[in-house]
Design a protein around this nucleic acid. Sequence first.
DNA 1: GTATGTGAAGACCTTCACAGCG
DNA 2: CGCTGTGAAGGTCTTCACATAC
Lengths: 208, 208
Amino acid sequence: MKSSIPAATVARLPIYLRCLGDLAADQSTCSSEELGAIAGVNSAQVRKDVSFLGSQGVRGVGYKVAELRRELRSALGLTKGYAVAIAGIGNLGRALSNYGGFAGWGFDVVALFDSDPAKVGSKVGGQRVESVEHLERIVKERGVSIGIVATPADAAQSVVDQFTGAGLRSILNFAPTVLQVPETVAVRRVDLSTELQILSFYLKDSGE
Amino acid sequence: MKSSIPAATVARLPIYLRCLGDLAADQSTCSSEELGAIAGVNSAQVRKDVSFLGSQGVRGVGYKVAELRRELRSALGLTKGYAVAIAGIGNLGRALSNYGGFAGWGFDVVALFDSDPAKVGSKVGGQRVESVEHLERIVKERGVSIGIVATPADAAQSVVDQFTGAGLRSILNFAPTVLQVPETVAVRRVDLSTELQILSFYLKDSGE
DNA sequence: GTATGTGAAGACCTTCACAGCG
DNA sequence: CGCTGTGAAGGTCTTCACATAC
């Protein structure tokens, strides 16, 4: 996971990319000041982050929007599409399956898994739900690169073991638990309760 | 937002709390080494984090599980419940409304909002969906402390303005956009596409 | 002996401030 | 003149290592 771009910068690149997409279509250049303002980041930070891409801004003018977007997409590896699998088709898994927001960035949901026989075989978002028993085989067959875990906490580790067993090295975990994975595997955690608890701290802290 | 506890520590406290809850019921003490292993954190980090709580571990033994959990809950302000409102009852908003995982931590969903007249008046997760027009009034009436934004990107800023207008200072944002808020307001961003793009970077980076 | 609590070191990240270029 | 690119300064966070306490 050794990278030439600092982790903190990597985490901001998608934000820049989105913010650039939100600009008026006729805006061809954008200064670090301006991009920073809409991305919620200091302008020096923007310049330093962008400098890691090797992109050249134009002094006195700013960055060329189209070029910078291309550079960001390329740096993030969004040029080739990735196949995504979702495990756990409950409330959240179903919402994710139906969410169209990935496709625009080249992420393609190619498999859904659940352990409940009542759900297996049903269709969600145009995809057939498969039994988690066939996870490894199907993940390999369909060339899945990213696994999304949307199961209850107690099923998450087992699903992840199967994902990694099938060779996956990228996991997005929505289950409220900390996953144990080999260090070659990248995990991003998204946990609702954790976020609410953090907000709770700052509420309390500011004297509510 | 000035706090005596570092932000990085605050972000880990909920994880510790959850991990302690996952321990066997008969385990009365836990070392920093052990807690670190299941939380995915260095043991020195655990000790330093816990030291901010003022809690005392027992040298040669570890921390008393029950006592540490109490301290964590107290530090996070989870002793009093907070009322939560969800705006945007689409796929995700509906999944969040039906998700029972908050209640156990003292978060109570007391209001749902949507701008679509077809949804207003329907029931989701036992709650009536209200028109976003009445957001400010209802938020005040019901003493909401935390606002969850699950609207499409283009509606998010307007909803947040209403939330902050009603006096909210804590926002959890699922909409794929960067919100502009007064600096007295705490925002946590949860963005699926961003997470996938970050994973994409590391996939590419490790030679996929 | 075993595990905490913590100063100090080191790594990482952000911000400043200004030289340099268009 | 305006804005980028970047060395240097200043913070913050993590890890080490060991004195300290049970």
